[in-house]
């Protein structure tokens, strides 16, 4: 597994660049990850990312777009506006979580 340096820290990532260790994440890293995929973080973005972080902690898996809508209360349509084209993947990427499963 590769290690990369983000915001002055050594971070473990998988071959697609997703963080592999939950506890290595912080907000400074999230900002850099967001920039890499062309997302500028606003309050609305942070609310969703924070939901994903806390939901992962309790559920043990990355929330799908539907779960972010039903459990988190952020409509899928809004997710598409904030994280264009591939919201589920982008949200997980910025939140430092694995790609959501849901697709088997």
């Amino acid at each position: 597994m590769p290690t990369i340096e983000i915001a002055g820290k050594d971070i473990d990532v998988n071959e697609e660049g997703f963080l592999t260790k939950y506890d290595q994440w912080d907000e400074a890293i999230a900002k850099v990850l967001a920039e890499q995929i062309g997302v500028e973080m606003t309050d609305e973005h942070w609310k969703i990312v924070n939901f994903l972080r806390s939901d992962f902690k309790s559920a043990g898996e990355t929330a799908t777009s539907r779960r972010v809508q039903v459990v988190g209360g952020f409509p899928i349509k809004e997710q598409f506006v904030l994280f264009p084209k591939k919201p589920a993947k982008k949200m997980a990427y910025i939140a430092g979580l694995p790609k959501p499963k849901g697709c088997v």
Binding site: E15, E16, G17, F18, L33, Q36, I37
Partner: peptide, 11 residues
Amino acid sequence: EKKEVDHYAHH
């Protein structure tokens, strides 16, 4: 191959 195709961080 996958490495090249899906290397997401570089998008």
